[in-house]
Amino acid sequence: MAQRRLAGEDRRPAAGGRPVTWSAPGRVNLIGEHVDYAQGLCLPFALAERTVVEASVRPDGRFVARSDAERGATDLPLDDVGPGSPAGWAGYAAGVLWALREAGHGVGGMDLTVTATVPLGAGLSSSAALECAVAVAADDLFGLGLDRTDLARACVRAENEVVGAATGGMDQAASLLCTAGHALLLDTRDGAARQVPFAPADDGLAVLVIDTRVRHHLADGRYGARRSAVEEAAAALGLPSLRDAAPDDLRGLDADLLARARHVVTEIARVREVVDLLDDGRLRDVGPLLDASHASLAGDYEVSCAELDLAVEVARAAGALGARMTGGGFGGSAIALVPLTSVDAVTDAVRTAFARAGLATPDVRAAEPSAGAHRDA
């Protein structure tokens, strides 16, 4: 997963503590959902929407953070940052500094102001965008000279140990490693990454992101329960992870574990199929695999919800080549692969269906494969 630094980045701290800005994108996972913690394969791409942090070094060893989405500020000694502290959104940011310090890197106090265009709780990885923006800022400000692998590791540890969300590493890798015009084939077993050309507009297509406005919180236990089931299934099979399992291996599992494991095993296979199609220039043929992914996530993994199912069903009926939920689930967003000539029809159909169901109007936008985290100014 190692990545060379982007051209134009320098390693010098901001002169005299002058605030500088860094940003990191949210992401959409084209396919490969809920397999990153099973050492599986994922295929995310970065969004144009980004979280921006303005940061400077504090000589007093304190962590002070403000966000345009929250009232008040978080202010505490960096020595007080650790599992469960600080609570709330600031834990994602402060946790990165804690993880870097735990890894032996010389990180001190920081003053941080956060602005974001990545929708919160929409399944587009707003938390990883925040973590990764802070990570590249800390790397620059303290002259750490770390590669993107080290930064991603710190971000994952922040979310797992400080925030308490049992996420895998796909979101952070996407936010740090993606390049414009590509999806990132990420092997979460060994960290290997490959840029896969992915420019839907060149094929007369668009990837629509449909934010249902149903908000989720991955630290509420349901996400962790799915991860625990996957680990339990692997242990029952005597395997280090479900990455090593074939469909026939799952027959001896009890019903609940069987369903969870079947999703993981078949989803990893779907990622391989999608990558083969993209390598062959056959993006239009990806649609049925998106449909199959959603069926597996809704049925075997039970992480969809009525709003996501509605968005997917209506998008397909209105002309999408395929559609599925994306992200951790229990709300958030769906994606639809749509001919450019059908974008307006699909958008209108989804919004009309939500209105008839008495639901909040979904936000629908085209997703452009974009660049990963970097220093802005």
Score class of each variant (00 low, 15 high):
14 A>Y: 10
335 I>F: 11
351 R>K: 15
202 D>Q: 15
338 V>M: 10
52 V>F: 14
16 G>T: 07
317 A>R: 15
242 L>C: 04
315 A>K: 06
185 L>Q: 01
262 R>H: 12
63 F>D: 01
200 P>S: 13
315 A>I: 05
175 S>A: 15
43 L>R: 04
300 D>W: 12
203 D>R: 02
61 G>V: 07
66 R>C: 09
246 A>F: 13
202 D>H: 10
26 G>P: 02
289 L>E: 01
77 P>R: 12
200 P>E: 14
79 D>M: 08
132 C>F: 10
55 A>S: 08
269 A>V: 03
72 G>Y: 13
342 S>G: 09
235 A>N: 10
37 Y>P: 03
60 D>R: 12
142 F>G: 02
106 G>F: 07
327 G>S: 10
110 M>K: 06
139 D>L: 13
336 A>R: 01
234 A>C: 11
340 L>A: 04
47 L>H: 04
229 A>V: 06
142 F>Y: 15
304 S>M: 03
339 P>E: 02
264 V>L: 10
70 E>S: 07
114 V>G: 00
296 S>Y: 13
241 S>H: 12
154 A>W: 00
146 L>S: 00
9 E>W: 15
281 G>C: 08
332 G>C: 04
12 R>Y: 12
277 L>A: 07
176 L>K: 12
162 V>T: 00
278 L>A: 05
6 L>M: 10
266 T>D: 00
210 I>N: 02
306 A>Q: 10
129 A>M: 11
29 N>T: 00
274 V>Y: 02
218 L>S: 13
81 V>L: 06
345 A>S: 07
87 A>Q: 07
158 A>V: 03
59 P>K: 08
93 A>K: 02
55 A>Y: 06
172 Q>C: 13
9 E>K: 09
85 S>F: 06
39 Q>L: 09
52 V>I: 06
53 V>D: 01
21 T>Q: 13
137 A>R: 03
120 L>V: 07
68 D>E: 14
200 P>N: 14
208 L>M: 10
314 V>H: 09
358 G>I: 00
342 S>V: 05
52 V>L: 11
51 T>H: 04
155 C>I: 02
205 L>C: 08
